[in-house]
Design a protein around this nucleic acid. Structure first.
Length: 684
DNA sequence: GAGCACTGC
């Protein structure tokens, strides 16, 4: 393989190595190593890098409306700034928005500890879906979606005196909607403060976005940027001199090379997907066995890490390796944002990431492998400098590194926008083109979203939200296609069944997949017991009803290879949806096993996702004649192929695969969605 | 025969 050429990375701070600690690594995991456990909480707080900036931050918040705060993860910004503000007797409520539930909950718990109070009491609380605080704590940690919901009933956020958008560099769909709305609110509420906390370089653009100063005089700026030094150790960067033909093989070679050298410390490898991770782990394990036999080099404990890995498998990466072993974790992007793996000293970065990308021509989401951005590369490198100075080995050349984009495109410019547009409309933005997007999405994506919302009768011809259907749809935290099905279920008399089906579609999957042994076959046989020829959605209904009939027993789940945790979550979601349906006075009733009624009701919302069996033996979408394939996870994969089907999603990997299918009749499309399908649309 | 990562009063 190619040689690595060393390249430096300027240590963010070289003066205070001895002062660093890891006690505030709150992001997501509960595995927090606290070197200063015996010290008082106040001493610990003062050790944080951000402590030196305390007064300056408070001063800037007095003077400016928006503070753009650049700080590496672990500098203490999410836990400390709200505390500084209440210590300075800041009036009103301070809201902190996190992209992930676990982050909101663990931050609230952490800060409750630090303030010597109980979480969900007067001082600190959190609100996430299904788990809200009902009082009004001074500091409230929440997921981004929660604040968006609150804006619907309180458009000026009168309850808050300050909002902090944490991890803003991740630029989720919600972050962008919230930033656009906050800009509007800040103009109307001069007393409100916004803190945008980001780990990366996009500060200048965000500053320009929020700065309401119309004069040339900087003194009138309403936004200001500030950087806080992180708690990073220096990380040395190595590039390859020649591009590699295969980064999976190259990453394996690099691991072996580090392992054969004198360097100590655990290794983290970034690849793009599960298949690559499994392949690299397999290759490394073959070598690991050889090493163990020869007893010459350090032994390796090789572990995979990706989102769909069973929970107990994921936990392994947080444990220290046995004596005489070096831990090698091969991970997808989970290790860049959601999960912090302790003990990492060497990072190997393949330079690519798998991203979801919405295609307006096919109306489908594709997963595409793309080069990472500079900020993403920096984030990955930073994973090597958390315990001591480390190294990052980049499997691309320095020239290619210089060509990378500064930031990953925000979700807003690469997503299906139906849900986002509906939310923005519900927040009183009539003209989308006048909405101030931090990164405006492609006009095609907006158009496509508006078309679907119009076909669903959520907006009228002028683009105004319809009453009551459009407003009601916006209140559901669901894909508009699904909320339409739910709201229609009353007139079909099958709301009991539809509630179950929609709730089941909100979890990843309820079927567990054993990875080895004869349980793979046993799981398949058990799944067959629930399968019906009407498709996946009716099959899900059977699974849920079986679970309820078993009185939600864990034994039932175990026997049938079902996830108890997921099914319990479905029960929760179903309850929540049912409550909303009752508030709209939609009758909750059952159609007593008439799957035809249920399937007709599904057509009422899912009609844009209809496909027919072409005489060539493949499916095609009705709007657009795009070739589609049945996903191997679908119950229809092994059954005879019906003529007409509805799908809930399409994933574009090696082919266009339809998932979550329902068998329908073509007459139903004409009967229930005549505005969308004319007879002439039907070619054969 | 296939699976980036999140989230929603």
């Amino acid at each position: 393989m190619s040689e690595f050429r060393p390249k430096f990375l300027k240590p963010s701070d070289t003066t205070s190595f001895l002062d660093r600690d890891d006690s505030y690594s709150v992001e997501t995991t509960d595995f927090v190593y606290n070197r200063y456990l015996s010290q008082s909480i106040q001493t610990q707080r003062q050790r944080l890098p951000i402590f030196n900036n305390r007064n300056h931050i408070l001063y800037l918040l007095e003077k400016y409306q928006t503070l753009i705060l650049i700080g590496e993860t672990g500098c203490g910004k999410s836990t400390q700034i709200p505390q500084y503000m209440i210590e300075a007797e800041w009036p009103g409520q301070i809201g902190v928005c996190e992209p992930r539930r676990v982050a909101a909950i663990s931050l609230a718990n952490r800060v409750a500890d630090e303030t010597g109070t109980l979480v969900q009491q007067d001082t600190v609380g959190y609100a996430v879906r299904f788990d809200a605080c009902y009082n009004k704590p001074k500091i409230k940690y929440m997921t981004e979606g929660i604040l968006l919901r609150e804006m619907m009933s309180d458009p000026l956020l009168k309850g808050y005196s300050a909002i902090m958008l944490d991890e803003a560099h991740e630029r989720s769909l919600y972050t962008d909607i919230l930033m656009g709305l906050m800009k509007k609110i800040l103009k109307k509420r001069k007393d409100l403060r916004l803190i945008v906390a980001s780990a990366t370089l996009d500060a200048k653009e965000l500053h320009d976005f929020f700065n309401n100063n119309t004069t040339d005089d900087k003194k009138n700026d309403t936004a200001v940027i500030m950087s806080v030094e992180g708690r990073q150790f220096p990380v040395e960067i190595f590039y390859i001199s020649e591009p590699v033909p295969c980064y999976v093989q190259a990453s394996v070679d690099s691991v072996l090379k580090i392992n054969a050298s004198k360097a100590t410390g655990d290794i983290l490898v970034f690849l793009t997907g599960q298949e690559e991770v499994d392949r690299a782990v397999r290759l490394l394990n073959e070598h690991a066995n050889l090493i163990e036999e020869s007893r010459k080099k350090e032994n390796m404990m090789v572990l995979p890490m990706y989102g769909s890995l069973p929970h107990h498998e994921q936990l392994k990466v947080f444990k220290p390796p046995p004596n005489g072993y070096r831990k090698v974790v091969v991970a997808t992007n989970v290790a860049e944002t959601s999960v912090t793996i302790p003990g990492i000293v060497h990072v190997i970065d393949c330079g690519f990431v798998k991203l979801k990308w919405y295609n307006t021509e096919t109306h489908t989401d594709s997963l595409v492998v793309l080069p990472i951005s500079k900020s993403s590369a920096a984030q990955r490198a930073g994973r090597a400098g958390r315990v001591r100075s480390g190294n990052v080995y980049r499997l691309y050349t320095e020239e290619d590194a210089a060509k990378l984009a500064d930031n990953t495109p925000p979700e807003m410019v690469r997503s299906n926008l139906t849900y986002a547009v509906l939310q923005i409309k519900a927040l009183g933005i009539a003209n989308l083109l006048k909405f101030s997007f931090p990164s405006p999405p492609p006009i095609e994506n907006l158009k496509s979203a508006l078309e679907i919302l119009y076909a669903l009768d959520a907006i009228d011809i002028d683009g105004e939200l319809t009453k009551p259907i459009g407003y009601n749809m916006a209140e559901f935290a669901l894909d508009p296609l699904y909320s339409k099905v739910l709201l229609s279920s009353g007139e079909f008399g099958c709301s009991e069944e539809i509630l179950t089906i929609i709730a089941m579609l909100q979890v990843e999957t309820v079927f567990t997949k054993p990875t080895s042994g004869n349980s793979i076959i046993r799981a398949r046989i058990q799944k067959r017991l629930f399968e019906v020829e009407e498709g996946d959605l009716i099959t899900y209904l059977n699974v849920f009803n079986g679970f309820i009939q078993s009185e939600m027993s864990q034994g039932f789940c175990h026997k049938n290879f079902l996830s108890y945790k997921s099914l319990k979550r479905v029960v929760e979601i179903r309850k929540r949806l049912e409550k909303m349906m009752r508030s709209y006075e939609i009758p909750i009733e059952s159609c007593i096993r008439s799957t035809e009624t249920i399937r007709k009701c599904l057509v009422k919302g899912l009609f844009p996702n209809a496909a027919y069996l072409h005489h060539s033996g493949v499916y095609k979408t009705i709007r657009g004649d795009i070739e589609l394939f049945v996903h191997p996870d679908s119950v229809l994969y092994t059954m005879s192929q019906p003529q007409w089907i509805l799908f809930c999603q399409v994933v574009h990997t090696t082919k266009l695969y339809m998932k979550d299918l329902t068998v329908i009749e073509n007459d139903w499309l004409l009967e229930l969605a005549p505005h969308f399908y004319y007879k002439t649309t039907f070619r054969e």
